[in-house]
């Protein structure tokens, strides 16, 4: 179970490309060729995972970008991290 102290980073098997400043991104899983699309919130989250980062730190950073209550953002990012982990796009550190 992922929680705020869980440290995660982008998988070496994944790469993503944004579509411009403040735009969504496409994510490619290199070993399988699976392709994903995501919105700006997910892209900003991925930007923070170039280096290992705790989920709590990611929440702190994204609160500076988005107008959202902390509890809501943390809940959404825990759910998102679970999806990314299940898809093999991020890894636990």
């Amino acid at each position: 179970m992922i929680h705020s102290d869980t440290v995660i980073s982008l998988s070496q098997d994944a790469t993503y490309q944004d579509m411009g400043d403040n735009e969504p991104a496409v994510i490619l899983q290199l070993s399988t060729g699976r392709l994903f699309t995501c919105n700006l919130t997910t892209r900003c989250f991925l930007d923070l995972l170039a280096d290992p980062c705790s989920l709590g730190d990611a929440v702190d950073q994204l609160l500076k970008t988005f107008d959202v209550p902390r509890e809501k953002l943390e809940r959404d990012l825990i759910k998102l991290a679970g999806q990314l982990l299940a898809a093999g796009l991020i890894q636990l550190n």
Partner: peptide
Amino acid sequence: TTQEYQEPTLEEQE
């Protein structure tokens, strides 16, 4: 200055 928040999405494409 903050941006309008949207719930994060992740969709697999064909």
